[in-house]
Design a protein around this nucleic acid. Sequence first.
DNA 1: CACCATGTTCCTTG
DNA 2: CCAAGGAACATGGT
Length: 283
Amino acid sequence: MPELPEVEVLVRHLGPLLENQIIQSVTVQRAKILAPTPLEYFLSRLKNCRFSGLNRRGKYLLFSLQPPAPQPSFQMLGHLGMTGRLFLVSHGTPPPKHAAVVFHLCQHDLVFEDTRYFGRMTLDTTAIAQLGPEPWADEFTEEYFAQRLKNRSQAIKILLLDQNIVAGVGNIYASEALHRAGLSPRKMGQRLSRPQVAKLQGSIQSILAEAIAFGSTVPLNWHSPDRSDKLFYYGKAPGTADYYEERLAVYDRQGLACRTCASKIRKIVQAGRSTYYCPRCQK
DNA sequence: CACCATGTTCCTTG
DNA sequence: CCAAGGAACATGGT
C-alpha cells in the first residue's frame, strides 16, 4: 500500500477536486471490501451525498459526506491496502478490470481500483480509534515513544510497523527511517537507549516529511490506472523524467552500495516481511 | 513453475 | 493473558 506519504499526497491532490461533488450513484464490483457495511446500505447511504472533506489518519482516508438536509454528515473510511489507487476519470469511462468501487459524480467518476482487493471502503470507521499518534502529533513525544518501546522484546523494525505505536509507517519507510537513525532493524525495542529513541523519532518524521515533499513536486498522472512510475503508484505524467532512482537509501537495494559508506546493502526477513539495511551504518 | 510484492487481521502455538 | 509465527486475503510481475 501506499504508506503515509503516498496517502497524504493523494489527499492533498484529490481533496480539492472532490470538494462539493455530489454522488449520483455508486457501482460496486467487490462488495467484500465494504465489510462490515452491507452493500445495499452502502449504496443507499451514499446516494446524493456531497463530498465535504477529505482527510488522512495514518494510512487511512476519511471522506466527509453530507447527505441532503436535514440529515447529519457522516464519514466513509478508505484504505488502499497493497495495491489500491484512487483517481478521477471522465464520466462514463469504462472502469479498469479491478475497479472495486466507482462513485459516479456529475462530470467525473471517482474510481477505487485495487488489484489485490486488500483495500477497504467502508462506513465502519472504528479502525481509527486503534491507531497510535500521527508522527507529528503533540502526543508522539520522545517520552511516549520510549514508553511504548521499553517493554517490548520484538525487533524495532517490526515495532515500527505496529500502527498502534505510531500511525503511518509501512515496510518501505520503516527500513529507511532505521537507516537514517543508524539503528539495526534487529535491535529489540527495549534495548534502544533514550538518545536512540529520540533519533529514531526524528528520523521517522524527516523521512516521511521528505517523501511527502518529494511526492508533491513530481508530476503524477492522476487520471488513469497507469502505475508506471514505480513511485507513488499513481502513474508518472507523460513525458516526465524518472525522478525516483536515488530516492531510497536501502529499500529494495540489496547487494548495492550504501550511499553513505559503500558497504553492500543486505536483505533479511522479519515477521514475513523484507527488511533492508546497511550492516556498517546500522548497529 | 517458483517466488516476490507498499497491509491488516485472524488463528494457532508456546 | 501475552508474544510470536504463520496463514489468509487475491492478483500480477519477474
